[in-house]
Write a protein that binds this DNA or RNA. Structure first.
Ligand SMILES: [Mn+2]
Ligand SMILES: [Mn+2]
Ligand SMILES: [Zn+2]
Ligand SMILES: [Zn+2]
Lengths: 138, 138
DNA sequence: AAAGCCATGCAACCGATTTGCAAAGTTATG
DNA sequence: CATAACTTTGCAAATCGGTTGCATGGCTTT
């Protein structure tokens, strides 16, 4: 992605555009599926994992990315859509393929509302479907 | 719970009723919310965590209990209802309270169906709501 | 009694995540 | 410009939940 565009994204979320952050944001923008910290590390030569870790944390805190707990034991990360506030209302479903191990953001599939018992207050939500993705099901 | 009743539960799932398993099953039956391996360990004096771990694994494989990934990093466990087969259709929603840290089985709240994109095959599902439980919301 | 099998206990390992701390880089101030 | 203050980065090490290896113990079968 165009550097100026990346800087704009970071700026919109009040994150200073360091060289490292631009690299990481660009890499995240290239992904078709959500990736783990280790995945991210493998896509670079010679970058420190802890720095990547902290970069992801920073991005997550500023809602540039969201993290996905797909039950595999390693968190996955993917870009948020523009203006996302990660509220229960605008969250989407995630799908983890048990065969190819990829985790997909089904951004067009919003999580259906569930009536909770009286007095339970909803703040966050996580819905993960598991099975076979389109490439693996045939 | 009555010992004979515990033995019946284990027998129904083809698990041999050892002393340890009866103790663990009884403890699980006493819980109001799902508990972690560490929680379980704390409720006993002087039992080996690995043995508890393996007991939980055995129970899970035989569908005596189900595990819940509530996103806290430690799996929680709770008894399955009688005859449960843990299929997508008969799964329920879980709720994790961000204040008291308890994880509830909302056994009366089935996970709503979601239309997946073409060719995605669903095998498993996990839906966790987070927020404040009835005791913590007031 | 001997052999076989499963359950248990203890030590050690593993991968993912997190923290501590010093060095390098940036920004603000005089 | 020079210095101080603050932020980001790199490397080492700790933490934590989960898992495995292996020897011992107990029950069952021959
Ligand atoms: Mn997503
Ligand atoms: Mn449950
Ligand atoms: Zn796949
Ligand atoms: Zn609570």
């Amino acid at each position: 992605m165009n550097d100026q565009r990346l800087i704009t994204i970071l700026h919109a979320r009040s994150v200073k555009p360091t060289a490292m952050r631009l690299l990481v944001l660009d890499m995240l923008a290239q992904q078709e599926t959500a990736i783990s910290l280790s995945d991210l590390e493998e896509q670079f030569d010679k970058v420190d994992k802890v720095t990547l870790y902290r970069t992801l944390k920073t991005f997550e805190q500023h809602k540039i990315i969201h993290s996905i707990d797909d039950g595999t034991g390693s968190a996955k990360y993917a870009l948020c859509s523009e203006g996302c506030e990660c509220n229960p209302g605008d969250l989407h479903v995630h799908f983890h393929c048990q065969l190819c191990k990829r985790t997909f953001c089904l951004t067009d599939y919003t999580i259906p509302a569930v009536n909770l018992p009286q007095k339970f207050v909803l703040k966050e939500m996580n819905m993960v479907m598991k099975g076979l993705c389109e490439d693996c099901s045939t």
